[in-house]
Simulated assay, not measured.
Amino acid sequence: MRLFVVLMLLTGLTGCAGMGSSQQTEAGLVDARAKISMGRCDNGLVADLRRHKAPELEQQAAYICLQQGEVVAVEALLEDYRKRHVDPPYPDYSAYLMTLAQYARFEMTEDDDALRLKEGRKVHALFSEFVSDFPDSDYRAEIAPRLNELLEKMAKAEYRLALQAIEAGDTQIGQQRMRYIARYYPHTAPGRDANAWLDQHEER
């Protein structure tokens, strides 16, 4: 399931803008380059790259790790990318991979609506941060459709929680959630359903 989710996220993403081969010759990066060329992602690869600070190799490795659903590895490689390197190449690509890693975390929570909303808010924050930090990035074109998809899925989670509360006899909480959905997710299918439910069950 995790691998399927990540592969879907990577559809249309052609790889790092800096996928050109590195000219670094440090002996400590030999194993890292070999693993990247073989498409391997493991703790040793992450540790080697963190130790030797090879930014373009870090991006290449993060892409491979994301393909394999290794979200923790992606985060370990890129979460402080701009802090560890002076004027690193393609910072927007690293930031975008981080948004995809968090989106993968969100997608892996489909059986827990409360957790799904928590992880979804983190994705939303990263999307907003990315657009603010990189207004001219080519990857901005990928944000809008993913944001719409995110909002639809978050609204569905909110709606399910509202119905669960109502079915459990906690109508007040259910109504509050319905109002929240109608207000903050008005252009989603659950937003329209929430409006219909409110029209039927309460005076507004």
Rank of each mutant, 00 (worst) to 15 (best):
Q176K: 13
M1R: 12
L147D: 12
E119L: 11
A101W: 00
A27G: 02
P145V: 06
A141N: 14
Y139G: 08
A27Y: 00
R33D: 04
I173A: 09
L10M: 15
Q175S: 07
Q200G: 04
S137L: 01
S128I: 01
A114P: 05
Q67T: 11
E70S: 09
R146C: 03
D113R: 15
T99S: 13
M108A: 10
R146W: 08
A182N: 08
E56R: 09
Q59K: 08
R177C: 07
Y180R: 14
A196K: 12
G174H: 03
L45D: 01
Y139N: 08
T25Q: 07
E119A: 12
K53Q: 14
L13Q: 00
L150S: 11
H124M: 10
Q102K: 07
I143N: 02
L115G: 04
D170F: 09
S21E: 15
H187D: 15
A141C: 07
Q164Y: 06
M178Y: 09
D42G: 03
K153Q: 15
Q164A: 11
T99G: 13
M154W: 13
R140C: 04
V123M: 07
A76W: 13
R2I: 05
G69N: 01
K83Y: 10
D31L: 12
R105H: 04
E158D: 15
L3C: 03
P186S: 10
Q200K: 15
M154C: 13
Q200S: 11
L151T: 03
H124R: 13
F127E: 11
Q23S: 10
M1S: 14
D193Q: 15
A157Y: 06
S22A: 11
R105G: 01
R84N: 11
D92S: 08
L57Q: 09
S37H: 06
D42P: 04
V72M: 06
W197H: 07
D136P: 00
P135L: 03
S21L: 15
G44R: 02
V72S: 14
Q176W: 10
M154A: 09
A27P: 00
T14F: 09
C41F: 07
M98D: 00
D199I: 09
A162G: 12
A95E: 05
D48M: 02
V71W: 00
E167C: 04
Y96E: 03
A95S: 13
Q67D: 09
P145K: 09
A125R: 13
F127Y: 15
G18A: 05
S21H: 06
S21R: 14
R33T: 04
H124N: 14
A95I: 01
L77P: 11
P145G: 08
D92F: 02
A104V: 00
V86M: 13
P89W: 03
L115F: 08
Y103S: 12
H187N: 14
F106M: 00
Y63D: 06
C41R: 02
C16F: 06
P190N: 10
L29A: 01
Y180C: 03
A62Y: 00
A76G: 14
D138Q: 14
